[in-house]
Design a protein around this nucleic acid. Sequence first.
DNA 1: CCTAACTCGAACACCAGCGTTCTAGTTAGA
DNA 2: TCTAACTAGAACGCTGGTGTTCGAGTTAGG
Lengths: 217, 217
Amino acid sequence: MAASQAGRARPAAQTVPPGTQRRADARRNIASIIDAATSCLAHDPDASVGDIARAAGVGRVTLYGHFNGRAELIDAVLTRTLADADATLDAVDTTGDPREALTRLVGASWRIVHQFRSVLHAAQRELPPERIRAVHDRILRRVRTLIERGQRTGQFRRDVPRQWLVTTTFSLMHAAADDCAAGRLRADDAARVIAATLLAALTPPGDTVPAVDTSRS
Amino acid sequence: MAASQAGRARPAAQTVPPGTQRRADARRNIASIIDAATSCLAHDPDASVGDIARAAGVGRVTLYGHFNGRAELIDAVLTRTLADADATLDAVDTTGDPREALTRLVGASWRIVHQFRSVLHAAQRELPPERIRAVHDRILRRVRTLIERGQRTGQFRRDVPRQWLVTTTFSLMHAAADDCAAGRLRADDAARVIAATLLAALTPPGDTVPAVDTSRS
DNA sequence: CCTAACTCGAACACCAGCGTTCTAGTTAGA
DNA sequence: TCTAACTAGAACGCTGGTGTTCGAGTTAGG
């Protein structure tokens, strides 16, 4: 046990004196640990803490000085990854025609999903589903909002739960990432294919399935 | 090492004298081990070999007498599960209108996917992807064939790789199973919702999205 | 420049699951 | 009925990862 005490909260890693800044080298190390963890986990979801420390050019002890164990480390990696992703998606224009907006969103998300799929897999082994969900919150909300707007304009179907349409969106992107990793789908084809399928899936019964706009990157 | 010898193949579990039958009690035990493993893994993908043996009402040693370790056991479970599934799907009529046929297929597959999702998860941790793929072969082929037929009749799209349409089918079912397990989708709604989304996703650009036939179970 | 913050590596205890071995007992089935 | 097949269960050693401790060294930064 890290804490031999009974109740209390995290007794853990280097306690940060309230209101104080960490020392510069410490901050630098934390950053390289998260970097290393990200790339290690991307290559092997089972990478051990030792592997990660080594890849970060840091002692294992130092790592434990900053993170209360594997789970907390992975949580940090996942959190940063999704924060970065969210920032990237901020640059995407989600106004205008909902179908085009969704296509743009897929185009931008795709790369990220593809790149970090193994990180997600690692996280799924280590963290509870609610946590994974929580970390995705902002992105989830983004997609939900766009879908909602498309439903209001009548371009997206309303005969199934909205939540399901969100799930469909994520599901297709992750499936594409997996297929891609398995060599069953060409990476440079993925965005187009996902968008085409997704737009069709969202089309209300009775309406016509739109052709894909292949002009955009 | 199970084999202290150098080369040679599996030195492992009770060698079956060629052409001979196992003794009745042995066969019975093997069956209950696989049964127990299936239900244990369905409840917890990380269930240990010890847990499974206990659940099967069998000694751990006996289990090792029949399976060369956890991986082989899980392989057996997965294999049997998919063989059963395949048998069930044999009863489904996949002739006639491809859209209706696919709807029937989804209706029948859905229950299975939902029920055994955790078994799959366990297998994904233990077995290499190619193996998982191989075990799915017959079912995969079944879906592929149906989609191919729908493409020939012009009811399913041809502007994306066929493989991707197969992936889409599986992806949506598994996503529904997960959503269901997380309480985000009602189990009794799932089949309808999957079918509706999938049929739309498969519709060729320019065509009209069909309404779901809610009459069937 | 001096101290507190931080780092290092090796060593250690620990734990859980795996797979094996041994001895003894039970049971199928010719 | 008699033997070979099978089973039980406890004990053991192994492996691999986790988290902690120690003592000594380095470095940031007031």
